[in-house]
C-alpha cells in the first residue's frame, strides 16, 4: 500500500479564531496599502498579502499543515504549473522587441512613434 494513513489531526476552534482574525487584519492591511503610493510595488505588496492569506487558509482551514507529504506535493505541483503557465507565457511578452526596437506592448507604439503611422 501507499504511505500510512495519518491519524486525523483535529485543529481546535481557537486556532481557527486566531486565523480568521489574522485574515481580517490582513484584509484591512491590503486595503490600507492600496491607498499608499508605492508605484509599481503596489501590486507586489497586494499579491504578497494575498499569498500570505491564502497560505494561512491552506495550512490551517484546509489542514494542509497536518496532511501527508503527498498532499503538500500536490499543492506545490499546482503552484508550480500555474507559475509555468503565467511565467512562461508572460516571458514571451516581456521580451518582445519588434524590428524598430520598440518593446511590447505595441499599443504604446502609437504614442511613441506617431510619425511612423500612415
Amino acid at each position: 500500500m501507499s504511505e500510512q494513513e495519518h491519524s486525523e489531526h483535529i485543529v481546535p476552534p481557537a486556532t481557527y479564531l486566531a486565523i480568521i482574525l489574522t485574515l481580517l487584519f490582513l484584509t484591512g492591511t491590503t486595503i490600507w496599502a492600496a491607498f499608499v503610493n508605492l508605484g509599481r510595488f503596489n501590486i507586489v505588496v497586494a499579491l504578497a498579502i494575498a499569498t500570505l492569506k491564502a497560505t494561512l487558509v491552506v495550512l490551517f482551514f484546509m489542514h494542509a499543515k497536518y496532511s501527508p507529504k503527498r498532499t503538500k506535493l500536490i499543492i506545490l505541483a499546482g503552484i508550480f504549473w500555474l507559475a509555468l503557465l503565467l511565467g512562461m507565457t508572460l516571458s514571451d511578452y516581456i521580451t518582445r522587441v519588434d524590428y524598430r526596437g520598440v518593446r511590447f506592448p505595441i499599443s504604446q507604439v502609437s504614442q511613441q512613434l506617431p510619425a511612423q503611422r500612415g
Binding site: 491590503t30 491607498f35 501590486i43 497586494a46 494575498a50 491564502a54 487558509v57
Partner: peptide
C-alpha cells in the same frame, strides 16, 4: 473558493486606489 476571492479582491478592486 475563498482563496480565489482572496486573490480576486486586490486584483480587481485595488489596482490603483491611491
Amino acid at each position: 473558493v475563498d482563496i480565489v476571492w482572496i486573490y480576486l479582491f486586490p486584483l480587481l478592486y485595488l489596482i490603483d486606489r491611491h
